[in-house]
Amino acid sequence: HNGKLCKLKGIAPLQLGKCNITGWLLGNPECDSLLPARSWSYIVETPNSENGACYPGDLIDYEELREQLSSVSSLERFEIFPKESSWPNHTFNGVTVSCSHRGKSSFYRNLLWLTKKGDSYPKLTNSYVNNKGKEVLVLWGVHHPSSSDEQQSLYSNGNAYVSVASSNYNRRFTPEIAARPKVRDQHGRMNYYWTLLEPGDTIIFEATGNLIAPWYAFALSRGFESGIITSNASMHECNTKCQTPQGAINSNLPFQNIHPVTIGECPKYVRSTKLRMVTGLRNIPSIQYRGLFGAIAGFIEGGWTGMIDGWYGYHHQNEQGSGYAADQKSTQNAINGITNKVNSVIEKMNTQFTAVGKEFNNLEKRMENLNKKVDDGFLDIWTYNAELLVLLENERTLDFHDLNVKNLYEKVKSQLKNNAKEIGNGCFEFYHKCDNECMESVRNGTYDYPKYSEESKLNREKIDGVKLESMGVYQILAIYSTVASSLVLLVSLGAISFWMCSNGSLQCRICI
């Protein structure tokens, strides 16, 4: 991952900044910058967002509201009850120091605090018919004063009620008058409520006091790749198909172990950190130390980045220098085999997901714990399936590479015959000098055995068991695999060879 928040398929997220979902939807004055928000790819909250409900109280069923919003990608904020005409018999300019803005008392931008007009609070009834052709999110509140005197001074009615009804919602609220500790300079409380109004449905408000009335509502448009994440990451000019709280993932790998919460087309989250597919040879310690064997393909974004291909070729060293050249036929066979294998694994496992966190309130801790156990169970199954699949494929890959290298080895052996000696570690020792032209003939299969047989015969008789390297004779190393990324691999195959001279070296080696 890149540690950044990015656009998702070209669409920017909605960053709530210092506000949370509650503050944004109710219209906390400190969240005025969010009022123009219309569309987004996903919503970003920060872990310690401080601006929620400015007048103390709870947004009821907040967790369910977050779940609903996680599939919303755009909205239209509109005046559901026009301020100047909807409440002619009531005062609608209630403000509070708890919702101060720029040093002055204020109130929510989407709600109206209705109080008595003169000395009376006549029963009010108002309704709205949803003609938007889509779901409408309606929010309101109920004020709970701290004393009967406060109730009387604001609403005149000691036994007030609030009723809200639609086809799918029907509740009646009565204020709970009680002494409470002071929070944000208030002994009173406000509880906030919401409902989704279906197209064509009607919502009716009736009250004799204590109503925090809707002013603006939201017509919602769903987008199934949307979601809500909690993150401290910063926004950058970048684009992605998959976003996590820790950063964007741009990967076609089937798995990731970065974060379980994802938005967009994302690899499946697994616990494993070692889900690797081999593309090189079986481990040979001396070669492995030099980083030549054991190439791997990573299938977990965050564990290993991208696929690494092994390729086969020849390396030689003689009086004229040293050089490398790919054996294109065996390399292409290996590439085709690995590509098919990788595609097979991805096809089997690479279903892209959006995974969002589930919200539970403080009273639902047991449910949250149960949900976590269920999620953990599914996660263990996914991890096991992934590891088992790759384990089985790896064994076949190792066998496949062994065969490829063996074929190259036999190709060289059949040409050199007794003009060189096998020394048991995949290397041959020449009994004759071999210049670049000679080396090329070994690589392309045109090695002239009779041409060098007499010199080889004489050297075999002279050496008589002495280690060949100390006599200045020449080696050919018969097994060799270097490691390159897919891009470098293609470039390498396009070149005939490249040279690395070893000044004054008397050794001649050709490596497979």
Results as ranks from 00 to 15, higher is better:
His236Phe: 13
His236Asp: 15
Glu237Ser: 13
Asn239Ile: 11
Cys242Tyr: 11
Thr244Asp: 01
Pro245Lys: 06
Pro245Leu: 02
Gly247Ala: 05
Ala248Ile: 05
Ala248Thr: 03
Ile249Cys: 10
Ser251Trp: 06
Ser251Ile: 08
Leu253His: 12
Gln256Trp: 01
Asn257Cys: 09
Ile258Thr: 01
His259Trp: 05
Cys266Trp: 11
Thr273Ser: 11
Leu275Phe: 02
Gly280Ile: 06
Asn283Met: 04
Pro285Gly: 02
Ser286Trp: 00
Ser286Pro: 14
Ile287Cys: 06
Gly291His: 09
Ala297Lys: 09
Phe299Met: 06
Phe299Trp: 11
Gly302Trp: 00
Gly303Ser: 08
Trp304Val: 03
Gly306Tyr: 08
Gly306Trp: 06
Ile308Lys: 15
Ile308Tyr: 08
Asp309Thr: 05
Gly313Phe: 07
Glu319Gln: 04
Glu319Asp: 15
Gly321Phe: 02
Ala325Phe: 11
Asp327Ile: 15
Gln328Thr: 02
Ser330Leu: 04
Asn333Leu: 15
Ile335Met: 15
Thr339Ser: 13
Lys341Gly: 04
Asn343Thr: 12
Glu347Met: 11
Met349Gln: 01
Met349Asp: 10
Gln352Val: 10
Thr354Pro: 12
Val356Glu: 04
Leu363Asp: 04
Leu363Gln: 05
Glu364Pro: 05
Met367Phe: 14
Met367Cys: 06
Lys372Ser: 11
Asp375Ile: 06
Asp375Val: 07
Phe378Gly: 11
Ile381Asn: 05
Trp382Lys: 04
Thr383Asn: 09
Glu387Val: 04
Glu387Arg: 01
Leu389His: 15
Leu392Trp: 13
Glu395Tyr: 15
Arg396Gln: 10
Thr397Tyr: 10
Leu403Trp: 03
Glu410Gln: 14
Val412Cys: 04
Val412Ile: 12
Leu416Gln: 09
Lys417Thr: 14
Asn419Glu: 03
Ala420Phe: 15
Lys421Arg: 12
Gly424His: 10
Cys427His: 03
Phe428Asp: 08
Phe428Gly: 06
Glu429Thr: 13
His432Arg: 08
Lys433Glu: 11
Asp435Arg: 15
Met439Glu: 03
Gly445Thr: 11
Asp448Trp: 10
Pro450Leu: 12
Tyr452Glu: 08
Leu458Tyr: 08
Leu458Gly: 14
Asn459Lys: 12
Arg460Trp: 15
Ile463Tyr: 02
Ile463Thr: 03
Val466Trp: 05
Tyr480His: 14
Val491Asn: 01
Ala495Glu: 08
Phe498Asn: 12
Gln507Met: 15
Arg509Asn: 02
Ile510Pro: 01
